[in-house]
Design a protein around this nucleic acid. Structure first.
Lengths: 176, 176
DNA sequence: CGCATCATGTAAGCTGTTACATGATTAT
DNA sequence: ATAATCATGTAACAGCTTACATGATGCG
């Protein structure tokens, strides 16, 4: 179960409330795993009952800051190193791209342009995050994954632009 | 719901049995969406009740070959072009890479080498598929997505090799 | 005072996994 | 014969989404 280990991983970075974890899932982890607060709060309770997390402090508005325990770190390490990864992926955008080639050129262009706008926005956000991470001393452990995200998104950007150019070309041919 | 539209998309390619669709999910669509036969058979029944697919023929072993209807094609097109895509992704391997930077160099190297072996195998399979698709006349609509898969996997391969080299270097420093 | 944000939680319903269950056909 | 593959289906359970529900704190 990735949710459990994603929560443990985020708590290694910094003790956090459930609310903060929900924001981190939306920001740092968005392209890897997604989780809502309605899943995160019950998961924290489960992780506590297994001894993997504990309440570090209580704050205003009945907030609780959770921290990972030694057992939690061991569980995370075992998952990362010893457990055979599941290669199953679920990516709606990839399903769309797979079938985009069946569309008429005009429709295909519309679909690819929408994706290109999204990819460019992702690149912008990753560049922004990279600046912040580089400014921290020492740079945080996930700097290489930001670099990876930038490279993968550059591939998507170039490929989408090629598909758009190709679709424009095909649309032109029809009217010749 | 991507499962529904992935089934419709696969049926545009070629009328298929549920069993064949399950194999296609494992092969062509593996990096985009995953589905088991226990989900595919009930989904075909639902799609039939909505008029999006119909039985094209019945064969041996109580097999039924399904084909997409005109209404099904319209539904698929509307989904691809008009519906705002969900950008939610679930990718356990990406979660692992995100947290790999927290591991000790030796552990990180083990994790990255396992992924590199997988990525190299993916590249081998994509190259094989590309040859088959290029041999077909005319080349099938999903040729560009195979090219995209190859480019993305090349990025992963190079990045993983860099992480492995870096981890080896760090491991060396410790013993200096 | 009112709005945005912080903060947590539960319930109903849908989606997806694993396991169970059955049987036909083909190849060795 | 018997093993592998083809072929379909259901049930129990786990995971995830959407909606409901509540209230505190900080800012303008």
């Amino acid at each position: 179960m990735s949710l459990r280990h994603a929560v443990l991983g985020l708590l290694v970075q910094r003790p956090s409330t459930g609310y903060e974890l929900a924001k981190l899932f939306d920001r740092s982890l968005m392209t890897a795993w997604h989780a809502r607060h309605s899943q995160i709060y019950p998961e924290l309770t489960k992780l506590e009952s297994r001894g993997f997390v504990e309440v570090a402090s209580e704050g205003p508005r009945s907030s609780r800051t959770w921290r990972i325990t030694r057992e939690g770190r061991e569980e995370l390490r075992a998952w990362l190193v010893e457990k055979e990864p599941s290669r199953i992926q679920r990516n709606e955008s990839a399903v769309r791209l797979f079938f985009a080639g069946m569309l008429a050129p005009g429709d295909r262009q519309v679909a690819c342009e929408r994706d290109l706008a999204y990819v460019n926005e992702q690149i912008r956000m990753l560049e922004e995050t990279r600046e912040q991470v580089l400014a921290a001393t020492p740079p945080q452990y996930f700097l290489p994954t930001i670099e990876l995200g930038l490279r993968v998104n550059a591939v998507y950007r170039d490929w989408l632009q090629e598909q758009i150019d190709q679709a424009e070309h095909e649309a032109g041919e029809i009217h010749d």
